[in-house]
């Protein structure tokens, strides 16, 4: 056997040895990796207490709700607290050609809310009053234009105000009589 042939065989054995060592290392690494992946499902870990899904308190019983009577009481209280009285003379007078309408419109003492009134003729607002507190009234309105004819139906619209917002609208129909 020549020197060259012996060297070739020796090299071949060394290469096979290294391939074998490499294969063993790869298998060992794979084994360690797979073992680390399955760590959470370790039967020993399952014995640990399961953490709570959230905070708070769990109560016994069905969902609570207001009883029908409680709802009715609540609604009744709201309604009764909002009572408002309109007080208007059913007749107003105006001189022919004049724009000063004499009418009596009050925000009576029994009310708790402020209001202002509008005088409306055929859908057109002819007068808007200042804000009236309870126990205040107006006795004349300066219309934006005179009324024609002897008798005119007018609408006195109460705008009931609470905290700067209109919370109710109540109208009263009156008759304006023109005097010559």
């Amino acid at each position: 056997m020549s020197e060259n042939e012996r060297n070739r065989q020796k090299n071949s054995r060394n290469r096979n040895r290294w391939i074998g060592i490499g294969a063993i290392l790869v298998i060992a690494v794979l084994f360690i990796f797979l073992r680390s992946c399955n760590h959470d499902s370790d039967p020993v870990d399952k014995k640990k207490p399961v953490p709570l899904p959230g905070g708070g308190e769990v109560l016994d019983g069905d969902l609570p709700h207001m009883s029908d009577d409680a709802i009715r009481d609540y609604l009744k209280q709201k309604q009764d607290a909002s009572m408002f009285t309109v007080t208007v003379n059913s007749e107003a007078t105006i001189q022919k050609g004049s724009k000063t309408l004499h009418l009596m419109v009050a925000n009576p003492e029994r009310n708790s809310l402020e209001c202002y009134v509008e005088v409306i003729h055929k859908g057109e607002t002819l007068y808007t009053s200042p804000l009236m507190k309870p126990k205040q009234y107006i006795q004349k309105a300066e219309l934006s234009k005179p009324l024609e004819g002897d008798k005119n139906k007018l609408i006195v619209r109460y705008n009931i105000v609470y905290q700067g917002e209109i919370v109710g609208v109540q109208e009263t129909e009156i008759m304006a009589v023109t005097k010559s």
């Binding site: 709802i71 709201k78 309604q79 009572m83 408002f84 309109v86 059913s90 109710g168």
Partner: peptide, 17 residues
């Protein structure tokens, strides 16, 4: 002339369940 005096609530309440 008749003075019209009428009192009524400005709030009419209801609930839907």
């Amino acid at each position: 002339a008749t003075t019209i005096v009428v009192t009524m609530p400005t709030v009419l309440s209801f609930a839907i369940n």
